[in-house]
Every structure is written in structure tokens, then in C-alpha cells.
Design a protein around this nucleic acid. Structure first.
Lengths: 240, 240
DNA sequence: CGTCCCAACTGGTCTGACCACTTGACCACA
DNA sequence: TGTGGTCAAGTGGTCAGACCAGTTGGGACG
């Protein structure tokens, strides 16, 4: 029998999730005041410190604004939230939001080549050698999930090579959104497993320090996945 | 006389900032355990709930990992943190980190044209009309700071037009990093005030729905600023 | 030598109290 | 009429001390 690790979620975790969902779903409209901490504690049947911890975390993400003496106000997350919110938006209530998914793919297609270009300028042969290592492993992989993990590792190295903190943090945020859905996505992308040639071309461009070629090669690495996923999203959207 | 609003920072705010700085500065190396909550409370002379609120917020940003029963561990923020951390990294201890600043400029140059292209595809004449409004105001502006604010407003509209949640959140994060430094940057960029023509060309491309032209026009809007800032950063770096 | 168990940590939660601040209503005074 | 002062009620901020729940490591026991 397939046992899975039990997940014990703390009280404040659960409150955090509930509040976040309500804000994101618009059940708590922007500008609206939240119930007071005491009231929330009473309604939820928990203590005030637990409520406060959840609220502080919500405030940390920019979804609410708490002011001493006044009420805690809901903010418009579209304007106030940062990229860290992405994982929560991408999969909501166990379902993948295809319009968010589409924008992830678009952003990936836009940002990826730029990262590759910077990596080609700055990474040099040392980076290319590391990339070779991952590529070789990919060539020997037939499991779709493992393939996706290796692809992420490849990009991880590339991002390191780009030597840009902003792209590194962007990558972290995108990866955090991507990973929970990885098993599901891997199934859709099973046909790509074994297509190492685009990666090899990209690595070659990095080794040569040729930014323009790397940019084009990165686009060729990303395009098949993007096309597959976009059409899959479109099919899912039609279901409704 | 120029009065400014007094800033009262809560105890947990201060603890949050202290811990965050220590992690980012590497004084608390990744993998290292944090002192226990009780110990922190004792050392800092505050109560445990205050410490906990700060720790929960730190954990929310991915900088530490807290486990019941075990110690709270510091994580490598380069791998665990998301783009929301950027403002904290860009200006640290009141000083602007030029290497982070450089990567912000690079990312902007990379992402901006992509946003413009999407906006051209999806925004249409309605978006162009809004953009015109901002551009007209810019043409009548001579104050450098106000100019920068309007430039941000222009991009804000463009991001809306791109109709992409990922780019929206990226923009929010970048803007959050950008805005605190805006007055200082505005002084460096004073020469650009009044250069509305690139914006007009970009708006025209959006109105025409011409993605390729919009992409190029966006690059032309961004390049002068990027060059100016990068050389300013280089000069600052030389000071050391 | 391996196994088990327990004590001493850790974080998680609760209670109830008090402080600091904001808000709005009310009132006195110009 | 409006200006400022006062006050009570409600909000978030902080504290203390206690107990629950999970982890860890070492020592007793087989």
C-alpha cells in the first residue's frame, strides 16, 4: 500500500490559507476591512496569537494592510502582491488556473532566452561543462518526471551562469510555482523525453560565448514545451 | 518647514529586519540553526510572541525553515527566496548594492520589450488612448521625480495591457524595489526629462497592434535609462 | 551490540491582561 | 458656524506564564 507522509498543518497555517484564498477569490474585496483579530479568533475557535501570526504572514505578502488602532484592510493583490504569490494563484483549490498557466509559459519564453544570452556572455567553458553533465544524464533518462527535474537543473545552472540576482529570484519564484504541478505536467510533456539535441546546441553556444546564438537556441529549447502546454491549457479551458 | 510623518516600528518589525539582515549578510550562514525562540526573546528583551511573529514572517519569505520539535534552520536565500526579497537586497543598510542594481537594469531591458509586445497584441486602441494620456502629462513635466513616476505609470498601463499575471507580479516586485530609490535615481536621470518621443513611438506601435515594432520601440525607451544607470553604478563601484 | 525508552530540548497554542493608537461622537468655546 | 478639546469604545501591539506536541540524543536494558 502506498503510504504518504502525513501532513500536519498548524492552526495558523490553516488560517493563513483560508484568508489568502478568500482574498484571492475576491470574497474579501479590496478596500474592505477584515474582522478584528478578536472576532476572527472567536469565529475560528482559536486564540488571538494564532490569528495574529496568520495575519502577519498575509500582510508580509502584501495582501492586507494592518494599522494599529484601525482596521486591517484588504488590498488589491493584482497591484500589491509580488511574484511570490504566483504558486498560490497558479493552483487554486487543487485546480490549475489555465490563464495563469498561460502567462507562466509566456514569461518563460520571454525571460529564458535572455538568461541564456547572459549565461553565454558570463558562464564560459566551466558552465558549459556543468551543463554537459546534466545533458548526458538527460540523454539516459526515460522517466518523464525525472526528465523535467533534470530540465529544471539545467536551467538552474544557466541561471547561475547568468550571474544576475534578479533572474535568480525570478527563477526561484517560477520554479516554486512550477514544481507542485510537475508530475501532472510531465505526463503531458512525455513526448519530449529524449529530445536532448536542443539542449546540446544551447550548451555549445554557451561554450562559445555566443550570446545571440544562445538566445536563439534557448528559444528552440523552450518552444516545443510552450506549444504543448498552451494547447493542453486551451483544451482544458474548453472543457468548462 | 518640511515635516515628515513619524515612523513607529513595532517590536516584531525590528526583529524581522534584524534577522533578515543577518541572513542576507551571511552572518547567519545557511544550514546554521537559529537560537531558540525563548533564547531570542531573552536576548532581545522581548516576549516570545513578538519573536514568533517575526520568525513566521521570515519563514514566509523562505529565508528560514522552522520545524516543530527541531531547530529553526537558515536557508540559502539565493536558492530559496523569491523575487519579493529584491527590495531588501537592492538597498541594504541604506546603501544601494550596485551589482543588484545592475541585474535589475538587465532584467528590465530583457522583460520590458516582451511586455510591450504582448500589450501591442492585446491592448488595442483603448490601451493606446490611456498611454497617450500619460504621455501628454509627461510632455508637460519638468520635475525629474514626477517624470519617473509618470514613466512607471506608463509601464503600469502597458503591463495591464499585456494581460499577464506573471508579468504583472514581476512588475510589482520590480517596482517595489525601484520606488524607494526613485528620488536618488531621478537625479541621475534628470537629462532624460522631456524625451517623450520614444514613448510616442511605442504607443503608436501598440495602437497599430504591431508586436515586433512595439518590442523594438520599448527597447529604445529603456536603453538610455539603462545606459545612464549602468555607468552611474560603474562609477559608484569604482569608489570602493 | 542493538533496541527501547525517557528526559530535555524544540516549536505550537492558549489564556487573560494591559498598553498604544485610531476613530467618531459629543461638547465647550470663539 | 466651525474650531478645538475631551472621552469612550474598539482596534492592533505586547506581555507573562503555562501547557501541548514533536524531535533528538543518550543511557538503561535486553
Amino acid at each position: 500500500m502506498a503510504l504518504r507522509p502525513v501532513t500536519r498543518r498548524s492552526v495558523s497555517d490553516q488560517v493563513f490559507d483560508q484568508l489568502l484564498d478568500e482574498v484571492v477569490d475576491g470574497e474579501l474585496p479590496a478596500g474592505e476591512p477584515l474582522p478584528s483579530e478578536r472576532r476572527l479568533a472567536e469565529v475560528l475557535g482559536i486564540s488571538r496569537p494564532a490569528v495574529r501570526e496568520a495575519l502577519q504572514r498575509i500582510a508580509q505578502t502584501g495582501l492586507v494592510e494592518v494599522r494599529q488602532g484601525g482596521a486591517t484592510l484588504v488590498r488589491d493583490f493584482r497591484r500589491a502582491a509580488g511574484l511570490d504569490l504566483l504558486p498560490r494563484l497558479l493552483v487554486r483549490g487543487g485546480r490549475l488556473d489555465t490563464s495563469i498557466g498561460r502567462s507562466v509559459i509566456e514569461a518563460r519564453a520571454e525571460v529564458g532566452p535572455g538568461i541564456a544570452a547572459l549565461a553565454a556572455e558570463r558562464g564560459g567553458p566551466a558552465l558549459a561543462a556543468s551543463l554537459d553533465g546534466v545533458t548526458e544524464t538527460m540523454a539516459a533518462t526515460i522517466d518523464p518526471v525525472e526528465w523535467q527535474v533534470l530540465a529544471l537543473d539545467y536551467w538552474d545552472l544557466l541561471v547561475d551562469g547568468a550571474d544576475s540576482m534578479v533572474f535568480r529570484l525570478m527563477y526561484n519564484s517560477l520554479r516554486a510555482a512550477y514544481e507542485p504541478a510537475l508530475p501532472a505536467l510531465a505526463a503531458v510533456l512525455a513526448d519530449e523525453v529524449g529530445q536532448v539535441e536542443p539542449y546540446r546546441l544551447l550548451t555549445a553556444a554557451v561554450r562559445a560565448g555566443d550570446a545571440a546564438t544562445a538566445r536563439a537556441a534557448a528559444a528552440r529549447v523552450l518552444t516545443p514545451t510552450a506549444d504543448t502546454l498552451l494547447s493542453a491549457f486551451a483544451a482544458m479551458g474548453d472543457d468548462r
